[in-house]
Design a protein around this nucleic acid. Structure first.
Lengths: 204, 204
DNA sequence: TGCTGGATACCGACTGGTTGGTATGGTGTC
DNA sequence: GACACCATACCAACCAGTCGGTATCCAGCA
């Protein structure tokens, strides 16, 4: 809001460093010094832009929401005409994102909230906004798919959108435990199977 | 192995304290001093029983596996005659466990592995053993249910057992983000629906 | 029965390095 | 010359881990 006049280069570099370092080492184990070293700035710059480490945590969650939000908004899965096809293409897109090392494809928000949900309320709230906001981008398509197939159900579009996020977060945890993306991909396949069965119930 | 003669009281108290403190604050944010204070022992006792904090992390993961393993082994969901009923009762049991505060029903292993998967290999491996070992207790029932219904499928019993764990772990993350168990329960309901559709495909 | 010696369990003051955060000063720009 | 931006030096608190010491038990032995 305070006008993006000059190029706040250091701030952006710190935020970008936070995304990668926190995902690899966790929030508590990430030190301000290391963040500064990775970003190539000094501590003075850090505390000029962020009042505290916790405030950086909130800003990092918001920065994550913005960058990934833009990434998903520009993704090709929106091109399908049918809402169910869009939803399935979204999940396939998430699966296709499982590339590179584990710290590169896992989610900052899941890592962040695990460590801070009890101790830093502001970060917990930022993580909630991030997950819920992202899930909401799926709700319209889910509702349209439900209407299109005349599904009146015990579950809501919102709960399904959040369930999809839960499966993804859980898949990341398994990938971290096993040190590879394979089981995460398997889990996403199960999710896809669930969605297809939900919306295309009878065999033929 | 060194014979359980005396009562190693302090060690057990430290491990029990670790289960609750780490789940609430995370691994890195948990200090040895706080662990000792919670357990009511001194630092000397801590480092008498554990060479380092990381070694305690491994021991805590193993202690978690043992205590929860015993809990699940004694749970009533095994009583059903049909393997699919057992599997569904297991999931229902997991849902019923969502009682009390978030730190009380969430999983130590998920918290631990998130923070240490890149930095402490021994803890990551202990978490892998814990999750995989628990998932294996479901495989026999899944396989029996597959055979009983003549399902030859693209997925394996092992991948489904791990997918169930993924959903649970993801549900815990959502619960942490939202500060309550409700969405976790919703997600488990979606999982139940998936299992029923998988094993009882045609409507009628 | 009493003595000895070693092993295990535990205590708590201490240490050296690290941490988040501050104080202060410099530099470019309007 | 005010202000945003950044650099450097510094600090008090805190951290994991150490170390010398004590308490208790038990085996062996006279």
């Amino acid at each position: 809001m305070p006008s993006p006049t000059a190029k706040p280069n250091a701030k952006l570099k710190i935020l970008d460093a936070a995304l990668s370092v926190i995902r690899a080492k966790g929030y508590s184990a990430t030190t301000v010094d290391e963040l500064c070293a990775t970003a190539g700035v000094t501590k003075g710059a850090f505390f000029h832009h962020f009042k505290s480490k916790d405030e950086l945590g909130v800003a990092a969650a918001e920065h994550w929401s913005e960058t990934t939000g833009a990434k998903f908004a520009a993704a090709p899965y929106h091109d399908h005409a049918d809402p169910l096809d869009r939803l399935l293409a979204y999940v396939a897109f998430r699966k296709a994102l499982l590339q590179g090392g584990v710290p590169e494809f896992t989610c900052l928000i899941g890592t962040l909230v695990q460590e801070t949900y009890e101790t830093v309320p502001t970060i917990r709230e930022a993580c909630d906004r991030s997950i819920s906001g992202h899930a909401e981008t799926l709700e319209a398509d889910i509702e349209a798919a439900m209407r299109g197939r005349g599904l009146s159900s015990e579950w809501t579009a919102k709960s399904l959108a959040l369930h999809i996020q839960a499966v993804l977060q859980g898949a990341f945890i398994l990938a971290k435990a096993k040190g590879g993306a394979e089981i995460a991909a398997d889990s996403i396949d199960h999710l896809t199977r669930y969605l297809e069965q939900l919306f295309r119930p009878a065999k033929s």
